[in-house]
Simulated assay, not measured.
Amino acid sequence: TVFGERKGRFGHLREVGVGGFVPAVEQEERGTWVVVHLYDPSVDRCYTLDDTLSRLARRYPDTKFIRVRASALGFATKQPSSSSTRAKPSGIRRATRTIREDDDDDDPFGDEKSGFVGRHEDDESERSSDEDDDNVDTDMLPTMLVYRDGELVFNWVRVDFEAGQAGIEELLLRHHVLPTSGAQNNCGLPSDDELFDDD
């Protein structure tokens, strides 16, 4: 292990496609928190949240952090015949209810175990995903879902507003998603945040 990093089961923000979403959320040990970032690649504030979640994943390696395109899950899709938006927070209460059985082969992000992320230019599922991105109401993003034991516990639409000035880490600590002792196991050395703090 690299000096200063904690050992844990996870330790990074991992992208999953529609086929990997249900296993990523439901097939964990009891009591494991899974933080899911629903994003769209065209939204800058989603990249900001990715940076924050990547840092948190390294600091709290026993919490699982994943991200998935909102369009892959059909979240916040615009109705084709009107300008209204259909958010699906109640439809993702249980992860298995959101994914159709025939979508298992649509995961364009490769094999989870090998860490390989592959894309094929002629991949039909990827083209349809790009088309679906145009139907996502980006005003609802970034959205963050938090699961435990396969059940949706928290659903924060525009989590950046919800977190406010205190930030995402404080929001997750306040709701006991992150262990309060997680950042303290640093061999007595200050964290990166403390090193570069001007106070």
Rank of each mutant, 00 (worst) to 15 (best):
D102Y: 10
R94P: 04
R30H: 12
S71G: 15
D199H: 11
D139E: 13
L73R: 00
A163I: 00
G20M: 00
D192Y: 13
H176M: 09
F10D: 01
L173Y: 08
V35G: 00
D132Y: 06
D160P: 03
T48S: 10
L178Q: 02
P41N: 10
S84C: 05
R127I: 12
R97L: 12
F75W: 08
G164Q: 00
S125Y: 13
A57V: 05
A87V: 10
R59S: 09
S54V: 06
V18H: 04
E131R: 12
T96N: 10
E169R: 11
V22H: 03
V159G: 02
G167D: 05
S42V: 13
K88C: 08
R86T: 15
L189G: 07
I92N: 04
D106G: 09
G118D: 08
I92S: 00
E112D: 12
D160E: 15
V157E: 14
D104P: 00
S191M: 08
R119W: 09
G11S: 05
L195I: 09
L141N: 00
S181G: 05
C187D: 15
A95S: 10
R55C: 08
T98E: 09
R45G: 02
Q27S: 14
E26R: 13
S83Y: 08
A183C: 07
D123C: 12
D132A: 15
D105Y: 06
N155P: 01
E124K: 11
F65D: 00
E29G: 09
L56F: 00
R119A: 11
D134N: 07
L178F: 08
G11N: 04
L172F: 15
E29R: 13
F65S: 01
L53R: 01
P190H: 02
G8S: 06
D133H: 09
C187I: 09
R119D: 07
D122Y: 05
G188F: 09
E112G: 08
P89S: 05
V157F: 06
T77F: 09
D132M: 10
S82W: 04
D137H: 05
P23H: 02
L189K: 13
E151Q: 12
E126R: 11
H175W: 09
L173A: 07
F196I: 04
E169G: 06
E151H: 11
G167N: 04
R148Q: 14
K78M: 14
G11C: 01
G19R: 03
E194K: 07
K78G: 05
R30L: 12
R100S: 15
V157I: 15
V43F: 01
E26P: 03
